[in-house]
Simulated scan of single mutants.
Amino acid sequence: MATKRTTTKPPKAPASAQPAECQPCGGTGNVAVTVRVGRKRRPVGQQDGLCLACLGSGTAPES
């Protein structure tokens, strides 16, 4: 006969009112992308790009 488990689950933490911000973009939804030009592909500057972790929403993805 199998024994019964007697352990209990810890209580869940209450959900916060504010969603957590995305780590790569810092909650802005944009990240800096290096622009490269020329045959040797040298970097000349940066432009804003869409954050692929949160898809521009600025909130942390639920995993």
Score class of each variant (00 low, 15 high):
G26C: 14
L50F: 02
V44R: 07
T6H: 05
K40H: 04
K4M: 10
G38P: 00
C25Y: 00
R42K: 15
G27T: 00
Q18G: 12
T3A: 13
V31A: 03
G29V: 01
S63G: 10
R39Q: 11
P24Q: 06
G26V: 11
T34A: 10
P10D: 12
S63L: 12
N30C: 14
A17F: 01
N30Q: 14
T28M: 01
A60C: 12
V35L: 03
K12H: 10
R39I: 09
A17T: 07
S57Y: 02
G38H: 00
P10S: 12
A32H: 08
L55V: 12
R41K: 15
E62M: 12
T34Y: 04
T7A: 14
C22E: 01
T8E: 07
Q46P: 02
C54E: 00
P11K: 15
K40A: 06
P10E: 11
G27Q: 02
T34G: 04
S57A: 13
R36S: 01
G45F: 04
P61K: 06
G49K: 04
D48H: 11
P10T: 15
T34V: 12
A2Q: 11
A53T: 14
P61T: 08
C54W: 00
K12S: 14
C22P: 01
P10A: 15
T6A: 08
C54R: 01
A15M: 13
R36T: 08
C25T: 03
A32F: 02
R5L: 13
R39K: 15
P61Y: 01
A53Y: 03
R36F: 04
S63D: 13
P19S: 09
T59E: 13
Q18C: 08
Q46G: 06
S16C: 10
R5H: 11
A20F: 08
P10I: 09
P11E: 14
V44L: 05
S57T: 14
A32D: 11
R36K: 13
A17I: 07
R5S: 11
S16I: 05
G26T: 10
V33Y: 05
R5V: 09
G56I: 00
P14V: 05
V33M: 05
R41I: 05
E21Q: 15
T6G: 07
R36M: 06
T34K: 11
K12M: 13
A13H: 08
T34D: 02
G38E: 00
Q47H: 03
R36A: 09
R5A: 10
A20W: 03
K40G: 01
A2W: 03
A13Y: 06
T28Y: 02
A13T: 08
V44S: 05
N30P: 05
K9S: 15
T59I: 15
A53W: 01
